[in-house]
Design a protein around this nucleic acid. Structure first.
Lengths: 223, 223
DNA sequence: CGCGATTTTGACGGCACTCAAGCGCCGTGG
DNA sequence: CCACGGCGCTTGAGTGCCGTCAAAATCGCG
C-alpha cells in the first residue's frame, strides 16, 4: 500500500547520495505548500524533518488525499515524466526540506550512473505501489485498509530508524479517511475496534502497536 | 477514468509517428499473453486490431484487472521507467499488434525530439489517470462507476473513428467488475437498471448508448 | 480559560455483497 | 440435426458493512 506516484522512501545509502545534491534547505511552516498542481517541475524535495500530505481536488472542490510523506522521503518525483506537478503538497506541521534542483539532477545523472539507477529504482517502487492502492480501494474492507495503513506507516518509520510500534499520527481522521476511501467516523470506529481487540493502543494521534501479527492477519493476502 | 499506467490512447498524428517505427506485426490468439509480470521490457506494442486486458495477481492468486486496451492504443509504456513489466497482458480475442523494439525507440528518441515529446505526453496522460482511478475506486457508487466505464469506452472508440454510441464489449461482466471494484452480479444489475431508465440498450455484449447526457449526469462531478 | 476543531459513539438506512436458482448462448459430440 | 453441457448472464432474497445524521466529549490553539 501507499502513496500513489508521489512519495519515495529511500534506502539509507540512496539518501546519502541525494543529500549531497541538496542545494539548500528550506523551512516550511504548517499548512504551507511545497508546490501546486500544474506548476512546473523545478525541484525535488527531500524531507529533512516534518511531514506532508498531497492531494488533488475532486472536481466538486473538496480535497482527495493521495499520499502522506514522512521525513527522509523524496517528494515530487511523479513530475519527472511530465514536467508539471499533478497534485498539491502541503505541510502537516512545521517542516524542513532539502531542495534539489531539477537541472542539477539532469546534469549529475549523466555523470553518475549510480544516481540514475537510484532514481529509477525509486520510480519503479512508485509504479508498483499504484497497483496496491488500486487493490486496496477496489476490494478491501475498512478494517483491512486501516490495518494496512498502520503497517505501512510502521514500516516507513522503522526504515528511518524510529520505532516501528510507537509513533504519532500527524494527520486527522478525516485525512486518513480521504486517503483510504472511508468516512472519518468509520476510521474512528476502526481505531476503537482495534483497541478493543488489543491490537493497538490509541490515544488521539498517538499510536502504539501491541500486536503486529494480528494487524498482518487482518491485511491477510494483501500484505 | 481508465487504465492505470498501462494503456496509452494516441492522437492520430502520434499514431502515424509510431507506426513508422513498427518493426513487424504479430498475430496474437485469444487468451495468448503479450507479456508477463516481471519479464524484461523489450517492446512496446501498438494494437493494430483486437483488444487486451492487463491484470496482476492479488496475492491470493485471483486476477485483479487493471485495464483494457483497444485497437490503436499503445501497451507496455509503464515499463519504460522500470525496465520490467508490472502486469500481465492477455488478448481478449484474436488480435494483431505492431512490435516496436525498445532499443529502436531509444535510438530514435535521440534523433527525433518530436518523438520524445510524443512519448512524454503519453506517459503524462497515464499518470493523471491514476488519480481518476483512485477517486473512482475510493468514493464512487456502482452506478457512477459503470457510467464512467461506458463513457470512457465510448470516447476511446470515437477517437478511433468508430461509433461512440454503438459498440461491443469484449470482456465479461466479471472482468468489468474486477476492474471497477464490483461483483459481477452488481455489474449485471446496473446494466439492467440502465436499460430500464432507457439510458442504454444492452443485449449480452452489445451496447447502444441511447442517452449520453444521462450517463454524463450520473458521473456528475467526476467527469 | 474559552471556543472551535477534532474525535467518539449511537441509531438508522441503503447499497452492494453473498448465496442461490434459473435462463440463454454456443460449441461439442452423438 | 438435435441433445447435452458448460459458461456467462440475470434476477431474487437476505445480510452486513459502511455512510449519514446527530449529540456529546475531548483536545488544543489563541
Amino acid at each position: 500500500m501507499q502513496n500513489i506516484t508521489e512519495t519515495t522512501p529511500l534506502e539509507p545509502e540512496e539518501l546519502q547520495q541525494l543529500a549531497g545534491l541538496a542545494e539548500r534547505r528550506r523551512a516550511i511552516k504548517r499548512y504551507q505548500h511545497l508546490y501546486h498542481t500544474g506548476s512546473s517541475f523545478q525541484y525535488l524535495y527531500l524531507i529533512r524533518a516534518g511531514s506532508f500530505k498531497s492531494y488533488t481536488a475532486d472536481t466538486s472542490g473538496r480535497q482527495q488525499i493521495t499520499g502522506f510523506h514522512l521525513s527522509s522521503e523524496l517528494v515530487g518525483t511523479a513530475a519527472i515524466g511530465t514536467g508539471r506537478h499533478i497534485c498539491d503538497v502541503v505541510a502537516l506541521e512545521d517542516s524542513s526540506v532539502y531542495k534539489i534542483s531539477c537541472a542539477e539532477i539532469e546534469r549529475l545523472v549523466h555523470k553518475i550512473p549510480m544516481l540514475q539507477r537510484c532514481l529509477q529504482r525509486a520510480l519503479s517502487r512508485e509504479f508498483e505501489r499504484n497497483y496496491k492502492v488500486m487493490m486496496l480501494l477496489g476490494s478491501m474492507k475498512a478494517e483491512e485498509r486501516l490495518a494496512m495503513f498502520l503497517l505501512d506507516l510502521s514500516q516507513r518509520f522503522a526504515m528511518q530508524g524510529y520505532s516501528a510500534t510507537e509513533f504519532d499520527l500527524r494527520m486527522t481522521r478525516e485525512e486518513i479517511g480521504s486517503y483510504l476511501g472511508l468516512k472519518f467516523e468509520t476510521v474512528s470506529r476502526m481505531f476503537s475496534s482495534f483497541r478493543e481487540s488489543r491490537s493497538i493502543e490509541v490515544k488521539n494521534r498517538s499510536i502504539e502497536i501491541k500486536d503486529l501479527d494480528r494487524l498482518r492477519q487482518m491485511v491477510g493476502y494483501f500484505a
